[in-house]
């Protein structure tokens, strides 16, 4: 699931709106009254990529997603979703996009299978040579694990079951691009794991491009090829979970034992420290463990810095590191 290392988005100024890009967002701004919620958001997504959008509450994740879904007008900026401006997306465009919103209580009197089969119908005319729309209702119910509830009324479903139905409705038209706004809120660990498998299936087998928001960093790390962190109205980090934690200069934790005693030390220079450790004590060192900062640590560090007004500095620092990394890898 490791994608191609994405070049940093700020380097694309002046390029034509991306050929072959599923999402291309440049200078996106959203203003409510006199408050800027989004203040120049830039990012892209390539076909088949799974992108996670993280950020503190109120950072504008849902606003961003709703603009991309065509549910909300933006104040400024260029946005292209599947090559179309979502503010002017037609029904043909709509048929290629799947949407799972944060909370939904609709169609409570309908039965699960009845609603899925019904909503699937709308996608029939939009089948292509490559994609047969819609997804068969029974197959889909099975794929999201709702087979034994297929004949239940929707209002009788539990929160987690309802969420799975929402996901099923989101993909019934076999979308080329799927938006998931906090898809696993209220899932138990088993449902969460099944959902993760479904996302992997969609991205691997159908090469669906997926953009999701979540508060679960572990989930972002598991699912996403690339993580975007939105804070202070801007994307302050853009890269794989690994890149993010490797390249932020957060501290690593080193644990070892010497003469039966346990030691712990935190440092940003873990390799050098361990080297020194061996030089000094040699074979006396045992049980060595080096823990790089988790995504959570990285995330907290980035958001804290962005919120204290140093967002730009962090972004530049991160951009430089990524560029160096890309060159080294090439």
């Amino acid at each position: 699931m490791t994608g191609v290392t994405a070049p940093v988005t700020t380097a694309r100024e002046g390029e034509p709106p991306g050929e072959g890009l599923v999402l291309d967002v440049r200078g996106l701004r959203m203003r409510y009254g006199s408050t800027d919620v989004l203040n120049g958001v830039d990012f892209v997504a390539r076909p088949g990529e799974v992108v996670a959008l993280l950020g503190p509450n109120g950072a504008g994740k849902t606003t961003t997603i709703e603009i991309l879904e065509g549910f909300r007008m933006r104040s400024a900026g260029d946005v292209s979703v599947l090559g179309v401006d979502p503010a002017h997306g037609d029904e043909n465009w709509r048929a290629r996009v799947g949407v799972v919103l944060q909370s939904w209580r609709d169609h409570g009197k309908w039965r699960v299978r009845e609603l899925l089969a019904h909503l699937g119908m709308y996608y029939g005319p939009y089948s292509t040579d490559k994609i047969t729309r819609p997804w068969d209702a029974d197959e889909l119910i099975d794929a999201v694990g709702l087979t034994e509830h297929a004949q239940k009324k929707i209002k009788q479903l539990s929160g987690g079951q309802r969420r799975r139905l929402d996901v099923a409705i989101g993909i019934v038209g076999r979308p080329e691009l799927l938006f998931l706004d906090e898809p696993t809120a209220g899932f138990d660990p088993e449902a969460r794991r099944e959902f993760h498998e479904l996302v992997h299936r969609l991205s691997d087998e159908a090469s669906t491009t997926i953009m999701l928001t979540t508060h679960d960093l572990d989930e972002a790390e598991k699912l996403a090829d690339r993580i975007l962190i939105l804070a202070g109205g801007k994307i302050i980090a853009d890269g794989s979970a690994d890149e993010l934690s490797r390249r932020m200069s957060t501290e690593a934790e080193i644990k070892w034992t010497r003469d039966g005693q346990r030691f712990v030390h935190s440092t940003t220079e873990s390799t050098r420290y361990v080297h020194e450790l061996f030089k000094q004590h040699g074979d006396a060192i045992g049980d060595l463990e080096v823990h790089r900062a988790s995504l959570e640590d990285t995330y907290m560090a980035l958001v804290r810095e962005a919120e204290s007004g140093q967002g730009d500095a962090v972004l530049r620092e991160f951009a430089e590191i990524t560029e160096v990394g890309t060159e080294a890898g090439a």
């Binding site: 879904e69 549910f71 919103l101 909370s103 609709d106 169609h107 909503l119 996608y123 939009y126």
Partner: peptide, 16 residues
């Protein structure tokens, strides 16, 4: 149905 999201659902599917 505006409040419970039925209309938004209709908006999310083609010709809904």
């Amino acid at each position: 149905e505006r409040e419970d999201g039925t209309l938004l659902r209709a908006k999310a599917v083609p010709n809904g």
